[in-house]
């Protein structure tokens, strides 16, 4: 399928069930991922899990961006996501290093161990 056709299909939406997924599908997946990430972040106390949850929310936003870019036939969204992924990778490296340091100081990964920064 040529790129133009795919774009046409994505724009009009395809009534048949087995046809290519529409924007709504992508957004639904994105929302679900974000919701899972948010709930995970709020309910879990393990720093690594919480970090993974933030990554999940991150990627959910990325999916939404790509989907919208595709929908509007604009490459800005995709370009943006590439950058975000790069930054997220660097940030993940740093965040994990921080987690390691935090673990070393208190021998625990419980987020509630660190409450020094309060008013």
């Amino acid at each position: 399928m040529s790129l133009m056709n795919a774009a046409y299909l994505a724009q009009t939406g395809y009534p048949e069930l087995m046809a290519a997924p529409t924007l709504a599908h992508y957004l639904l997946v994105s929302a679900l991922m974000f919701g899972i990430g948010l709930i995970g972040f709020l309910t879990r106390r393990n720093l690594i899990i919480m970090f993974l949850c933030t990554e999940l929310m991150f990627q959910a936003a990325g999916i939404a961006l790509v989907a919208f870019g595709r929908y509007h036939l604009d490459f800005t969204g995709q370009t943006f996501v590439i950058f975000v992924l790069t930054v997220a990778a660097a940030e993940a490296a740093m965040a994990l290093a921080l987690v390691v340091l935090l673990f070393r100081s208190k021998e625990s990964l419980d987020a509630q161990e660190w409450t020094e920064l309060k008013g």
Binding site: L38, F41, L42, R45, W114, T115, E116, L117, K118
Partner: peptide
């Protein structure tokens, strides 16, 4: 307003959400 700054990560997260 100071007590709202509890230092609890989850508190902030909940607040933002």
């Amino acid at each position: 307003l100071r007590p709202s700054q509890s230092g609890q990560l989850h508190g902030y997260a909940l607040g933002m959400a």
